[in-house]
Write a protein that binds this DNA or RNA. Structure first.
Lengths: 229, 229
DNA sequence: GCTGGTCGCGACAGGATTGTGACATCATCT
DNA sequence: AGATGATGTCACAATCCTGTCGCGACCAGC
């Protein structure tokens, strides 16, 4: 399984850098931002596996970020660890009731935070387990019949799903329309070659996301391929 | 969901009584014992949904109880919240690494502990290998032959019950009509595939509740699945 | 610029798949 | 026997998917 993705919202540069370094050393992929609003954008762009959120941050307050994360369907289930100042007990309570899953009181040791993140990840991971194909920012769970890009669930029709699955089983390789027909439609299908184009288009439309390049490459007079970015 | 069962291991009688009272008021079923060994016996007798464990207790130490709970297959998955004295940071780390899911520093307010328990309870869903299956807001007691959703009891016909049970044993996974026939009706049944649709509908009708999305997902040209939410 | 070939895109009608209500049958219980 | 509830099928409606066209944009070479 790919590296767990964290999102750290912390406006103290020194602490942010320290944690970034430590978590990367632990094998996490981690995005860092000091700003609440930017954090929300990042979370929507690519849904993280866990959010570490400082209570006192610039822009939108921590609890507001927390609430908004919970409100958005895509991020509603993501565990949140709040960082809070010592003694602010009411904040803790409110944080937990808002939807934070845990909090850590400043000052804390990186070891403690890492241990807590680990504890939550261990609790979450098994639920997500499945045979998952993964190419670039795309991932496809064949048993659950689900496709995800940057963590966001994507709806595809049956044929588009099979097409994408085939591409993801052979990333980077170029297939002619005939090969795609054989592989996705079946050897004995009597279908126009150009029909493949239409499904390629539907697939592109399905997985497109603003600001992200299209991973489906057209190779003129040869066919199509899925780029591993 | 039937009342969540807690196990509280606490040797301070005043605190134990206070927490017992508060948790009962919150609708939990709670067993209390001051002794570590007795706690292990109780946990084996009736596996709780969550354990609140004081670090310093009579008999076997808290961390030892924690470790043994984790070692026993029946209780390995049960979340544990440790109660620990202020400032014992190393203990926290060791506790978490041993398998505790969270800890609360004394002195704490009952509200805080209750909020934490609530936070963890909200997070438990996937495949507990016990007698009661639980997926999303659904829970199914195989022995009592009862299904509840968001605490409300739901009446299902025998076939719908078996169907739901099978889904809950494999949450999120998509099954074809044929697979469902094999699993729920039996391998040698001679039944129309479309009959599955009808029972899916009856199941949906049975578990539907106003304001809550339908957890049964139709995957066109593939089958059905129960969403793990 | 022009030309032949190739590809993207919107639209659409037919086809395939699924949702739904109704019904006859069968087993169980009173 | 009668009542009740569960079950498997069917027909029909509602959706969704799909293969094909046609048109225009684009590309490479002349």
């Amino acid at each position: 399984m790919s590296a767990p993705r964290l999102l750290l919202v912390e406006d103290d540069p020194a602490l942010a850098e320290l944690l970034e370094f430590r978590f990367k050393a632990e094998g996490y992929t981690i995005a860092v931002t000091p700003d609440g609003d930017e954090a929300l954008l990042l979370a929507q762009e690519e849904v993280p596996d866990l959010v570490v959120l400082d209570w006192m941050i610039e822009g939108t307050s921590g609890i507001e970020v927390c609430r908004r994360l919970r409100r958005d369907k895509a991020t509603a289930h993501v565990p949140i660890i709040m960082l809070t100042a010592r003694g602010a007990e009411d904040d803790k309570i409110r944080g937990l009731e808002t939807g934070a899953d845990d909090f850590v009181t400043k000052p804390f040791s990186p070891r403690e935070l890492i241990a807590r993140v680990g504890a939550i990840m261990r609790r979450i991971r098994p639920a997500l387990a499945g045979e998952t194909l993964s190419v670039g920012d795309l991932s496809l769970d064949a048993t659950a019949h689900k496709v995800t890009r940057k963590g966001q669930i994507i709806a595809l029709g049956p044929t588009e799903f099979r097409l994408l699955k085939f591409f993801m089983e052979h990333p980077g390789r170029v297939f002619s329309r005939g090969q795609l027909l054989d592989a996705v439609w079946g050897t004995d299908s009597d279908i126009e070659l150009r029909t493949v184009d239409v499904h390629i288009r539907r697939l592109r439309k399905g997985i497109e996301q603003p600001g992200v390049p299209d991973p489906v490459r057209t190779v003129r007079s040869a066919g199509y391929s899925l780029e591993a970015v």
